[in-house]
Design a protein around this nucleic acid. Structure first.
Length: 325
DNA sequence: CAATCGTGGTG
DNA sequence: TCACCAAGATT
């Protein structure tokens, strides 16, 4: 198999003066170049054979299933999402079903997926869909983006995966794949950059259905083969095209990537407080919450934060519960 | 732009 | 063991 050079990626504008309309003639556009088409085939063919059979990818999965999965998958691994996603779709088959229940039920059913504000936002998004979108998950990227808890990535993912549209889908997996294959570095930057968007745009297949397939395929490649810790280049369909690999897989240089500490933080306290409230069928006395953390100052700060975030509802008589509305 | 926001698996 | 990582969004 012949190894083609990578498609050229448009250079970054060198300054404000360089801001200009996109070239009228997209001659030599990377997406249409032979090398790009080659990459598309390799990755999509690989995907056809190795894609995981996930519930939200099945033919009968609707946009709501996709949307719920995207919320749950924000910073949470597939293996832990699977059982909760199943419960949610059985209990709330449509957005209106979720919207009909108090937000606290969403927080409770969220279980231990982490970042429970996502549950609150998903409930709020479902409510907005029920009221303003006739109960249907919107197809329009801008309308999706306007929903609570949906950012650039999730809007593109829902539009692409649920509705087959052509969008730049830049998640951590895709960014890592492009960092290696195209940019020749081990890891992408901490925050998504304009350069990354240019690369993604340049490589996005022109045809809509193929673009959607490409988005899912590049994500899956990043998840299954081009992992952060252990890239398995031996089975990678584009190893022969990978700039990083071809240059000897150089280790990441520069400042260490941000690490997240957890032990002893407010987040840990919030987690413990909320765990008590999730487990209780109804209101809980303050004494039950006091038991989870010894430092009173930090404890009250965490509880206050939860109330402020709408995750906890204070009641008369020093009692607390999950939000009833 | 950097900090914040949970939780559990893993190399 | 423990730092790192996992389909980000919001402020």
């Amino acid at each position: 198999m012949t190894s083609h050079p990578l498609p050229p990626v448009p250079a970054a504008p060198s300054g404000p003066a360089a801001a200009r309309p996109a070239p009228a003639a997209a001659t030599g556009s990377a997406a249409g170049s032979p090398a790009a088409a080659d990459l598309h085939d390799l990755v999509i063919d690989w995907f056809d054979e190795h894609a995981r059979d996930l519930p939200w990818r099945r033919p009968d999965a609707g946009a709501w299933s996709v949307m719920v999965s995207e919320f749950m998958l924000q910073q949470t691994p597939v293996s832990r999402v699977l059982p909760v996603h199943k419960e949610w779709l059985e209990r709330w088959p449509r957005p209106a079903d979720l919207a009909a229940e108090p937000p606290g039920e969403a927080v409770r059913a969220w279980g231990r997926l982490g970042y429970p504000r996502r549950a609150l936002r998903l409930h709020a998004a479902a409510t907005a869909i029920a009221h303003r979108h006739d109960g249907e998950v919107p197809r329009d990227h801008a309308e999706l983006l306007a929903l609570p808890g949906i950012g650039e990535y999730t809007a593109a993912a829902v539009a692409s995966f649920a509705y087959g549209q052509r969008h730049i889908v830049l998640d951590t997996n895709v960014r890592r794949v492009f960092a290696r294959v195209v940019s020749g570095v081990q890891y992408p930057p901490n925050a998504t950059t304009a350069a990354e968007r240019r690369i993604a745009a340049a490589l996005l297949p022109t045809e809509e259905a193929r673009a959607a397939r490409w988005a899912a395929a590049t994500m899956e490649l990043g998840a299954l083969v081009c992992g952060a810790r252990s890239p398995e280049c031996g089975v990678c369909p584009v190893a022969a095209h990978c700039t990083w690999r071809l240059s000897g897989s150089p280790a990441h240089d520069g400042p260490p990537r941000r690490g997240q500490t957890y032990a002893g933080t407010d987040r840990q306290v919030r987690g413990r407080l909320l765990a008590v409230l999730r487990a209780a069928p109804g209101p809980v006395p303050r004494s039950a919450l006091d038991a989870v953390w010894s430092d009173a100052a930090q404890r009250s700060r965490a509880l206050f934060g939860l109330v402020q975030d709408g995750l906890v509802e204070p009641l008369p008589g020093e009692r607390f519960q999950l939000p009833s509305r």
